[in-house]
Design a protein around this nucleic acid. Structure first.
Length: 666
DNA sequence: CTGTCGTTTATTTTT
DNA sequence: TAAACGACAG
C-alpha cells in the first residue's frame, strides 16, 4: 500500500487520497502532474474501487498511452490482491471514448453503428463539394473559413437546426452548414467535432443512456483540464453529475489552445460548477533551476486572468538566463548553432537541446545553419504519416469497402490508379440515387456494356466486389489485396517516374505502405480488435507515426538529435537546454495577438510554457531585423524579455562575431 | 491527365 | 519571398 505514496510530496498525497467528491488540482509545470494522476488511479484501485468504474480522459493518444503504462507499472509494483488482472480502467482521449460510446449509441441519432470518421482532409473536401453545389465562389470565400466556423459551432453544441444567422455571411454559413451536415448523414460519417457534440446530445436527450454511463464510470479523471472546450466540458459535467467524483487536473497558466476553442474559464470556474470542490495546488517544481522558475513566474504574473499560485523549487539557482541580440534571423540561427556545438562538447548530448519558436517559418534559417555546422536535428510537426497520399489512397479504398456511402473517399479513389473514369461518370454515380456507390458503379456498367468506359466501370465494379468479400479476412491481407488488384504499386512507380514528383520517390512510398501493413498486422493480432471499422476510426484519431512507433525510438544514442519545434508542440516536454528564438514584438507576442488583451495573455502563457521547458540552461534570442515575406522588418525585443527579473539575466556581447553571413559566403 | 501560369496568402493545431 | 492552390490549355 505504502508504495503508492513513497515518491509523492504531501500535496500530491492529498490529491491522490481524496476519493469522493470533486477535486481540482492546479499543477504547475514540472510539478509531477502525470505522477499525481497515475498514482491516484492506482490508489483508487488499491482502495477497492473496481477498475471498471474508473474513466481517465486525456487529449492526446500519447498522454493516454503514457498514463496506461505508468498505471500498469504501479499496479505491478503494488501487486494487488484485487481483480486488476481481469479489469482495467478506461483510459483514452475525448475522441476515442466518445467514439466507443457512439459505436453503441449512434443509432439513437439515426446513424449506423458502422459510421465512418472523417478526418480534417475529408471534412475540407466535403465542404468544397458543398460549396460547389451551392455555387458559392471558393475564391471569394476560403473553404477553410467555413470549416473553422462550423467546427466552432459544433464545439458550442450548435447544430444547423438551432443556428440563428443574423447577416449575409452567417446566412451563407447556415446554408453551407446544413448541407454539409446533410451530406455527412448521407455518407454515414461523423467529423471529429461530431464525436463529442453528438455524444453530448445523446446524453442530453436520452436520460436513461446518460444514467447508464454515469453508472459505468463512477470516477472520472480529466487531464489538461485547462484545454477543454465547451463540448468537452459539457460531456464531463454530464458524466459526473450523478456521483460528482470528478477529478480535474491542469494548469490555467498553460492554456494555449484558445484558437482551438479551449476555454480557460472551464478551469477558472470549476469551483462554481462544483461548490464542494477541494482545490489542491502542486507548486513544487522538480524540473528547473531557481532562475528559470523566477523568470517564468515573473512573466506570468503580468496576466490578470489566472489562479494565483507561487511555484518554488529545491533545485539550485543555476546559471543566468542568456539573452542574445542578433543582427538578423541568420545571425540568430548561426548563434544558436554555434552555441549548441560549443555545449555539445561539454557533456551534453544533442537530444538535450531544444530550439523553440513561435512560427514554423522560423525553422528554415535555423535549419540552414544546422546543416552548415553538421548538427543532427529533427523538426517536429512536419508531414504527418496518415496525411501521405499513398496511405490516404489505400485507406480510402478500405473506407469505401466498409462504408459504400462514403462519397468523399469514393471520389478519392474512383480513378486512382487511372482507369479512364472522369468527373462526369463520378457525378453520374453520385446522382444515381443509389446509396451504395459500389452498386451504383455496377448499375451504371450494366447500362452500357459496350463502350470503353462501360467496360472500365465493369472492371472497377468487379474489383470492388472482390475486395469487399475479403473485408473480414484480416486488415493486412485486405491492404495487400487492394495494392495487388488495383495495380497500385505500378501506379506509384508511374508517379515517381514523372519528373515533377521529385521528392515523393517510389521506394519511400512503398516503405510507408509497409509501415501501414505493420500497423494493420498489429491490429489483426489484437484479439477482438473490433474489425476494420475500428481500425479506420482509430487511425483517423491518430496523427503521427511517432504515436505508433513509441518504443522503437532509439535510446542508444546512435541518432541523438536536436529538436526544433513550435512552442505549442513543446508543451509537456522538458530539455536540459532550451533556446527560444525570435523573442521579438510582432513575432512573439505575435502581431495578430497584441491588440486583444485576452489573446495577449495567451501569448504570455505561451511564453510561460516555453520558458518552463528548460531544466538547466535557457537562452533567449531576438533579431534586430528579420526578413519576413520578402521584406525586412525591424522589431523591438519582446516585452516578455522585459518581464524577466534583471538579476537572473546575462546579456551576450553583440556585434563582434555576428557576421555569420560573411562566414558562409566568403 | 499533366504541366504551366497566375493568384493568393503566410500563427499556433492534442483529435 | 515562396509555396500552395486553382484555372486552363494542350
Amino acid at each position: 500500500m505504502s508504495d503508492i505514496f513513497k515518491n509523492l510530496n504531501p500535496k500530491q498525497v492529498e490529491a491522490v487520497k481524496i476519493i469522493n467528491g470533486p477535486v481540482l488540482v492546479i499543477s504547475g509545470p514540472g510539478s509531477g502532474k502525470t505522477r499525481c494522476l497515475t498514482h491516484r488511479v492506482a490508489y483508487l484501485i488499491s482502495s477497492g474501487i473496481d477498475p471498471n468504474d474508473i474513466l481517465a480522459v486525456t487529449f492526446t493518444n500519447k498522454a493516454a498511452d503514457e498514463i496506461k503504462e505508468r498505471i500498469q507499472q504501479l499496479l505491478k509494483i503494488e501487486n494487488y490482491k484485487l481483480k486488476i488482472q481481469s479489469a482495467s480502467p478506461t483510459i483514452g482521449t475525448f475522441h476515442s471514448i466518445c467514439l466507443r460510446i457512439l459505436r453503441r449509441e449512434a443509432p439513437l441519432l439515426g446513424y449506423k453503428s458502422s459510421f465512418t470518421v472523417f478526418d480534417e482532409d475529408d471534412r475540407l473536401s466535403l465542404i468544397k463539394k458543398v460549396m460547389a453545389r451551392l455555387e458559392v465562389d471558393a475564391k471569394r470565400y476560403n473553404p477553410q473559413i467555413f470549416v473553422r466556423r462550423i467546427s466552432k459551432l459544433k464545439t458550442e453544441l450548435i447544430y444547423p437546426e438551432n443556428y440563428k444567422p443574423n447577416d449575409f455571411f452567417t446566412r451563407l454559413l447556415a446554408k453551407i452548414y446544413a448541407a454539409y451536415q446533410q451530406d455527412l448523414r448521407t455518407a454515414n460519417a461523423l467529423d471529429f467535432d461530431d464525436l463529442i457534440a453528438l455524444t453530448v446530445r445523446i446524453f442530453k436527450n436520452h436520460p436513461e443512456v446518460l444514467d447508464h454511463y454515469q453508472d459505468r464510470w463512477k470516477y472520472v479523471l480529466i487531464d489538461e483540464y485547462q484545454d477543454t472546450s465547451f463540448d468537452q466540458y459539457s460531456l464531463t459535467k454530464l458524466l459526473s453529475q450523478k456521483y460528482k467524483n470528478i477529478f480535474a487536473i491542469g494548469d490555467d497558466a498553460q492554456s494555449i489552445y484558445a484558437f482551438r476553442e479551449a476555454d480557460i474559464r472551464n478551469i477558472l470556474n470549476f469551483q462554481k460548477d462544483y461548490p464542494e470542490t477541494k482545490v489542491i495546488f502542486l507548486e513544487q517544481n522538480y524540473r528547473s533551476t531557481k532562475n528559470i522558475l523566477a523568470a517564468a513566474q515573473n512573466i506570468i504574473s503580468n496576466n490578470q486572468n489566472q489562479v494565483p499560485k507561487t511555484l518554488w523549487t529545491d533545485n539550485e539557482k543555476g546559471e543566468e538566463i542568456f539573452i542574445k541580440e542578433a543582427l538578423n534571423e541568420r545571425a540568430e540561427a548561426g548563434f544558436i548553432a554555434e552555441k549548441i556545438s560549443e555545449f555539445a562538447g561539454r557533456g551534453y548530448d544533442f537530444n538535450d537541446f531544444a530550439v523553440l519558436y513561435r512560427t514554423h517559418a522560423q525553422s528554415r534559417a535555423i535549419e540552414e545553419f544546422f546543416i552548415i555546422h553538421s548538427l543532427p536535428y529533427q523538426i517536429v510537426g512536419g508531414i504527418k504519416f496518415y496525411e501521405r497520399k499513398e496511405i490516404k489512397d489505400i485507406l480510402a479504398y478500405i473506407k469505401v469497402l466498409v462504408n459504400p456511402s462514403d462519397m468523399v473517399s469514393f471520389e478519392r479513389i474512383y480513378n486512382i490508379p487511372a482507369r479512364g473514369l472522369g468527373k462526369t461518370v463520378f457525378e453520374k454515380i453520385l446522382n444515381s440515387g443509389e446509396k451504395d456507390l459500389i452498386e451504383a458503379v455496377g448499375t451504371l456498367a450494366d447500362k452500357d456494356e459496350k463502350s470503353k468506359q462501360g467496360q472500365s466501370l465493369r472492371k472497377f465494379y468487379k474489383t470492388l466486389r472482390g475486395l469487399k468479400k475479403q473485408i473480414n479476412a484480416g486488415i493486412a491481407s485486405l491492404i495487400q489485396n487492394i495494392i495487388k488488384t488495383t495495380g497500385y504499386e505500378e501506379y506509384l512507380k508511374g508517379l515517381s517516374a514523372s519528373k515533377n514528383d521529385a521528392y515523393a520517390n517510389f521506394e519511400e512510398r512503398m516503405e510507408n505502405l509497409k509501415e501501414l501493413l505493420t500497423v494493420a498486422k498489429k491490429y489483426d493480432n489484437i484479439e477482438g480488435g473490433g474489425g476494420v471499422e475500428n481500425f479506420l476510426a482509430e487511425i483517423a484519431l491518430m496523427q503521427n507515426t511517432d504515436t505508433l512507433k513509441t518504443g522503437v525510438k532509439s535510446q542508444n544514442g546512435a541518432n541523438k538529435k536536436v529538436t526544433l519545434m513550435t512552442i505549442h508542440s513543446s508543451k509537456g516536454l522538458e530539455f536540459p537546454v532550451v533556446f527560444i528564438a525570435g523573442m521579438e514584438e510582432g513575432l512573439f507576442p505575435h502581431s495578430r495577438s497584441v491588440l486583444d488583451p485576452q489573446e495577449l495573455e495567451e501569448e504570455r502563457r505561451l511564453c510561460y510554457v516555453a520558458v518552463t521547458r528548460a531544466k538547466e540552461k535557457l537562452i533567449l534570442s531576438y533579431a534586430q531585423r528579420r526578413n519576413i515575406f520578402g521584406s525586412t522588418q525591424m522589431n523591438l525585443p519582446s516585452r516578455f524579455i522585459g518581464e524577466i527579473p534583471q538579476n537572473t539575466i546575462k546579456y551576450a556581447a553583440t556585434g563582434i562575431d555576428d557576421d555569420y553571413e560573411e562566414k558562409i559566403y566568403y
